[in-house]
Computed example of a mutant assay.
Amino acid sequence: MKSTLLNMTAVLFGITLVASAGVGAVNLITAEPIAQAELAAKNAALEQVLPAFEATASETLTIDELPITVYTATSGDATVGYAVETKSKQGFGGVVSLMVGFTPEGEVVNVNVLKQAETPGLGTKMADEGNPLLASIRGQRLEDKKLVDGRLAVAKDGGDVDALTAATISSRAYVDAVNRAWMAYKSVATGAGVADTASGATQQTANEPQAQEGGENE
């Protein structure tokens, strides 16, 4: 068959159509397992940050233009705790997502790191059991902490949350996310209004250089 522009266009269209169909089929095959895995991970996080419970009811708030979901956990007719799926955009490697658990009285039960892309061996330690960030708030009511403008802050910013060694940016992001969780918990549990919860995380400006690996604590 003589090659023409029309023929070549038809062939390319056919190849593109087949490739698109293949990608679509793969997405259909993998979408459900991915969704199931994400649901399983979320349920596991809820169990790790809450006292024993029988059921949860969720409510999503918007804080600083970020969706924050509060899960009210119950056993029988009693509320046994609150879990807050929260996040911060201030991470060294991008978004940091946490699940923070509170007792009905506001004591932090536990924190589970859902997502982070921080520097290996530095910021990634926020996910380690018993890390300084978690140790600074677990088992405590956050209003009893040393607050800066009404918010939690790392020691370098005037608060009393111990930062990860050489990972201040990551630590600020963690605290920023916990502050949002705290505001959301108070809104659902006590009816308090949601306030601006931007933490002491340093904002990069157009003329300000980005911190380098290993230099997050400068």
Rank of each mutant, 00 (worst) to 15 (best):
L17T: 01
D157V: 00
G106C: 07
V113I: 09
A55Q: 15
G193N: 14
V109D: 09
G130R: 05
K125V: 13
L133F: 05
V96K: 08
T168P: 06
V154A: 05
A55F: 14
P104W: 02
V108C: 05
G81C: 07
G130D: 05
A195E: 15
E208N: 07
T205Q: 10
L134F: 11
E107L: 02
G81N: 03
G200Y: 01
T4N: 12
L133W: 04
L28K: 08
E208V: 11
I29T: 07
K2T: 14
V154P: 00
R172W: 01
P120N: 04
A44W: 05
S199M: 09
A198H: 14
D149W: 12
V70M: 02
V26R: 05
V154E: 03
V18D: 00
A135K: 12
A189I: 00
D128M: 04
T56D: 08
G214R: 10
T124K: 05
K125M: 12
A135E: 10
R151N: 13
G159D: 02
V96Q: 08
N112L: 08
R138W: 13
A37E: 15
G150L: 08
T124D: 04
N179A: 12
S170A: 07
D128R: 02
E65L: 09
E107H: 05
A19V: 02
E216R: 12
T190V: 15
V113D: 04
A195V: 14
A19G: 01
K125T: 06
P209W: 06
A189Y: 01
T165P: 02
K145G: 07
M1L: 12
T165K: 02
Y185G: 07
T62P: 03
A127N: 11
G14M: 02
V175H: 02
E143P: 00
T16I: 02
A184K: 01
D162S: 12
T4V: 09
V70D: 03
T30Y: 10
G101C: 10
T197Y: 01
M1G: 15
G106W: 12
I68K: 05
G130E: 03
T165W: 04
G76L: 13
A153V: 01
V49W: 07
Y71K: 11
T62I: 14
L122P: 02
Y185D: 08
A206N: 06
D160L: 02
V100G: 08
R180H: 13
L122H: 10
A211R: 11
E107G: 12
R180M: 10
G123C: 00
I63R: 01
V111E: 03
P120D: 07
P209E: 08
D144I: 09
L28C: 07
T168L: 02
G81S: 04
A163N: 04
V95W: 08
T165Y: 08
T202L: 15
L114T: 06
I169M: 01
G76K: 09
I29W: 09
L46R: 05
